[in-house]
Design a protein around this nucleic acid. Structure first.
Length: 311
DNA sequence: CACTTGACCTGTCCGC
DNA sequence: TGCGGACAGGTCAAGT
């Protein structure tokens, strides 16, 4: 469920909370090796003692860039969370809009302990933790994931653009040069599938998942089950600006918390309160008053107004 | 190549 | 109250 607005919200939070901090220890759940597949040796050499230089995003992928020349590439998939807990908050209470209790919990896959330190990196390879002398621990970054679909993986930074997913992924919908003409062109390869399946295809465009596909198609009055070849260009011309404004509003609201999405501080997003169709089955359509239905399109639960979204 | 379906997981909800 | 099964959906692999 973390889609573009959720992942971007996490990125912004992490940018503020963890950049310029040094990773002094790494723990991970050995029972879930796919969550963090790197070897202890690589972790000791390229993660421990490295400083976080930037946090970037491409599509739904987060890139935690280290000054060691390596990047922690992270995909939250459906139930992943990246939550920073500052040292001052250990043992403190939790805010009302928080979804996470004391961490780590049983969903925790990876824990990065962070500190502010200027010590030179001279770390024996066999060490898994860096002695930091009197430098205070600044907090911990927890990668939690109930369903274990998500992962965090270390790549050389220069190789990140060559990862299969990165090479194939489509344009960012919020970029200024993403226009209806661009989407129309990208859709040519998926003429015989439904418009919803095409929007979910990350090689067509980046960052759209089930929530924002349904919301965008409602806004543009396009039925999700319409075949791409039957979607008129005028409808694509409506879709692109609607999608952009929905994604911008979702960013403003800190994303959508449907199940367990939280931002880098463990707090929920509130876009779902503004959603027009998502999770609103059996409620009246805010545009035409007909009852919103939940159907199945592209193998996904799909929310649609059967009256004002035309096929 | 285009397209669809199943697998990966665990927590929650529904019906019995 | 317990329990089996359906369901949730991002992406990749395998199938048609």
């Amino acid at each position: 469920m973390p889609e573009l607005p959720e992942v971007e919200t996490v990125r912004r939070g992490l940018s503020r909370l963890i950049v310029a901090k040094t990773i002094v220890a790494v723990e991970h759940d050995h029972a879930a090796p796919k969550s963090f597949p790197n070897t202890p040796d690589d972790v000791a050499r390229f993660v421990i003692g490295a400083k976080i230089s930037a946090v970037r995003r491409r599509a739904k992928v987060l890139l935690i860039e280290l000054d060691s020349g390596y990047t922690l590439v992270t995909h939250l998939k459906m139930t992943g969370q990246l939550v920073f807990v500052g040292a001052q908050r250990f043992g403190a209470g939790h805010p009302n809009d928080s979804l996470v209790g004391d961490l780590p919990d049983r969903s925790t896959r990876v824990t990065l302990t962070l500190a502010t330190t200027t010590e030179p990196k001279n770390i024996p390879h066999h060490k898994t933790a860096l002695a930091i002398g009197s430098d205070p621990e600044q907090g911990r970054l927890f990668f939690n994931d109930q369903r274990k679909f998500g992962w965090m993986k270390l790549y050389p930074t220069v190789e990140v653009p060559h990862i299969d997913f990165m090479r194939r992924v489509g344009p960012e919908p919020l970029d200024d040069d993403f226009t209806a003409a661009v989407l129309h062109e990208r859709l040519q390869r998926r003429k015989n599938t439904t418009i919803k399946a095409a929007l979910l295809d990350q090689t067509v465009l980046a960052g759209i998942g089930n929530i924002y596909a349904d919301e965008s198609l409602w806004a543009a009055r396009i039925h999700p089950a319409t075949l791409v070849r039957d979607v008129p260009q005028s409808a694509i011309a409506r879709l692109v600006p609607e999608m952009k404004s929905i994604l911008r509003l979702a960013l403003e609201k800190g994303g959508s918390t449907d199940r367990n999405y939280v931002n880098a501080e463990g707090r929920k997003g509130s876009y779902i309160d503004f959603a027009r169709v998502f999770r609103r089955e059996n409620q009246p359509c805010s545009r035409c008053g007909a009852t919103i239905e939940k159907i199945r399109v592209a193998g996904r639960g799909t929310h649609v107004c059967g009256r004002c979204q035309v096929q």
